[in-house]
Nucleic acid binder design. Structure first.
Lengths: 208, 208, 208, 208
DNA sequence: GATGAATGAGGCTTCATTCAT
DNA sequence: AATGAATGAAGCCTCATTCAT
């Protein structure tokens, strides 16, 4: 009656495959990883792999989804906590824990870009990309809006436009970082400059 | 015993192929266009195509090269002309003729991003990408530096860093534009906002 | 300008592949032959094979088509020739050259049956099967009708119904012949019996 | 320590699976149904299914077997009952209860044809097909022979040959019915015509 | 007995590139 | 130079069957 392995184990297996696949995607990029690569990295047979994910796209989306839910969690958490410090919040959202610009970038970012760029003519993928963009956008938008309403930020600029600009900046940085060697992009310095600009646009004076 | 076809003719043929190929790359993207697509669009035989370009990569690079030399030409031309109005120059470089932000983007941009991003693990491609980045960078860098030396721009920030920021922004915008539907990206407004950012960083006040 | 090989050669190559494929289909049946079988029998590479036929179905249909056009040719030829001897014509159509029942059956027949039976739920295949049935039907129908109009045959029975019965009989025989060893089906004797019945139904007295 | 489930229960389970499988085979045909289809339709686990039937072939044969024993039963029953009316018997055997041609055909027939035709090169399957043919043949043969001995039928033709003709007709009709849409085959009319054929061959005059 | 995860052979197709003519 | 037939590596996906629990 009971399955061969516990549900826990199943979940674990799935997670293991996703983890292995993530490494592979980071290493080869989306287009160039093959299901065989994943099979080998995850130590699954072809059939086994397809039992969990019906194709490469599905597998990659599962990984994306996971990342998204993690982020959303963090963002939510933050929003509740320090509802007053919107600037801090914004910085944490952009740069992670410390809330200050550094060189660490999501290693999967290049593959994500690939995924959406090469799939830009595919209806399904396009829609999925849009959905993700919207989600990301709304997170930034809400924080900025909240900050503006709380009087912490100036409302000189449309919160949504600023949110879009943040995403564009982040995307551009990720892109250049994917293509160029670290020392050329100067992630940290560009980030600091962008932060200064945000401060100006939002009328935030001293640094957090 | 002169060649059966003139050198001129060959050049023309090559140019024709490149033009047709450009359309194809715009339509399908780099990864998804096949040599067959190109053959058909350019009305060349398989063998013929390979006579002009030794492979897909070579073909695409030829197209890139052409674009680059065109830009460089324009930039050079501008720099000589109105050596005094650096801000105007900068705007023209970023937004083309009129010098003000609009919705027109390079239709080949998405494919370019694809090309470099999917090839980021390939030594050759990576080097090529870097070279191109350097060239683009130096163009912006030089104008900014010139403006700073002329006292037209503040030298609070490193000219190179600003140049990098411009490229990051352009790349980010191109990326979002490639993935999202026109109405979602708000290219024009984001560009205007970015111009403000530049004004701040360069201490340019009113201007056109 | 001119292709590597003459058009003649091309046609020949195609014909060769079809011939080899026919043997393979006869040997393994439709479902169980793989493109690899065909490749090997025809001495073509995978890609080469796909250059001529875009998949197994396409290949098989080409073979069917060829058979059909041959038959149609023969039938047409006959119809012109001896427009008076409808009975002889009918017999020739059913049993080939000699016009009398024997054991020879189309060796590809089993595969044809397979093709249409296993594909009966596929819209495309179904339509194709119907079309072929209609063609076969009309050939028999026309001869019978002509014979009836010429007064050579009784018109007691609907010509179309008789035509259908002929096809059903032929199909049934082919089916049993495909499945059972020769000595069990008794093709010749069954055919003779069926012919007697036709004679009765059409009021044809002496044998041809 | 009696078995956890009664033998009765097991039999029932087996029967349930077979019934569900029959539907699936009718819907998809033999080649195209997968064990997964069956699992789902029968609500059994993969392992469970394989406990009752060691493979797809085995499962299908079990279904065939069941059908055959049912028929045999009916035939036997008839033969005892009205040993005098052989013609009626024959008609009932061919067309079921009412004993007259109608449109109802065994819905599993197409899959049966598939099964034997695709498996015609497999020794085991071939032997099995022959065995079944023999059984069907002998049933018809016996009735005809009995009728001939009773003087009800002419013995002009070999009873076995007639029996074979009946099967050929039935197979042919099943085949056409499997492939063509209902309205094209004219099952009823063809059947009536075939009955006339039999009457001729057996010298049966008026009758039902 | 039952379960369903895991296996891996087997087929299909696409495409960049080569090369004889 | 030009042609386009031929090549074959590479991927993708399906499914019957096995087997540890």
């Amino acid at each position: 009656m009971s399955p061969r392995v516990s549900k826990e184990h199943l979940k674990q297996r799935r997670a293991d495959i996703m983890e292995a696949a993530t490494s592979v995607f980071i290493e080869h990029g989306y287009e160039h990883t093959t299901m065989k690569h994943v099979m080998e990295a995850a130590n699954v047979s072809r059939g086994g792999l397809y039992q969990y994910f019906s194709n490469k796209e599905d597998l990659f989306e599962a990984i994306l989804e996971e990342g998204l839910s993690q982020e959303a969690e963090e963002a939510d958490f933050s929003l509740e906590e320090s509802a007053s410090q919107h600037w801090t919040l914004l910085m944490e959202l952009m740069f992670g824990e410390g809330g200050s610009p550094d060189t660490n970038m999501d290693p999967l970012a290049p593959s994500k870009l690939e995924f959406f760029i090469t799939g830009r003519n595919d209806e399904r993928r396009r829609a999925y990309g849009e959905k993700r963009y919207e989600i990301g956008l709304s997170i930034y938008d809400e924080i900025i809006k909240a900050g503006q309403e709380a009087g912490e930020f100036s409302d000189r600029y449309d919160s949504e436009l600023l949110a879009r600009s943040i995403i564009t900046f982040v995307d551009g940085l990720a892109l250049d970082h994917a293509i160029l060697p670290e020392e050329k992009v100067r992630v940290k310095e560009q980030s600091e400059l962008f932060v200064e600009y945000l401060k100006m646009a939002l009328d935030v004076s001293s640094s957090s």
